[in-house]
């Protein structure tokens, strides 16, 4: 118990039980899977990329939950970088999407399936 007090006094919340962690992880996994399903089903390139953002977000949620569980800040730090990368990817993806849209006047991914085999 002294450890708990110590934690509280050094600015950390009380430890989180594994069960609570499981709650968050399940939500995170569900969000990830929703992203996957969206990526597989939606034909709109922008929505598809939005779905990868959702998967990133799911990872972020898991990281924050783990960070809380282990009581260190690494997970939160990781999330900062995840957001950074998400922003960078989004910038590139949107530029690409605009380029593609100008070319075909359509946002459909099916427009781009000429090469095969």
């Amino acid at each position: 118990m002294s450890e708990l007090v110590l934690l509280a006094q050094s600015g950390f919340p009380a430890p989180m039980g594994g069960l609570t962690l499981a709650h968050y992880l399940f939500v995170s996994a569900a969000m990830f899977v929703l992203g996957v399903i969206g990526f597989l089903t939606r034909r709109n390139l922008i929505i598809m990329f939005l779905c990868t953002e959702m998967m990133f977000q799911a990872a972020g949620l898991a990281l924050i939950a783990f960070s809380r569980f282990w009581l260190n800040q690494t997970g939160q730090t990781f999330v900062i970088f995840v957001i950074t990368i998400a922003a960078a990817e989004a910038a590139l993806a949107l530029a690409l999407v605009v380029l593609l849209f100008r070319k075909r006047e359509s946002l459909s991914a099916d427009e781009w399936s000429e090469m095969s085999g």
Binding site: V36, F39, L40, T41, R43, A109, D110, W112, S113, E114, M115, S116, G117
Partner: peptide
């Protein structure tokens, strides 16, 4: 195996998943 290489983005993603 070639049938998997249809050139359709979604199909690739589906197979990957």
């Amino acid at each position: 195996a070639r049938r998997a290489q249809s050139g359709v983005l979604h199909q690739y993603a589906g197979q990957m998943a």
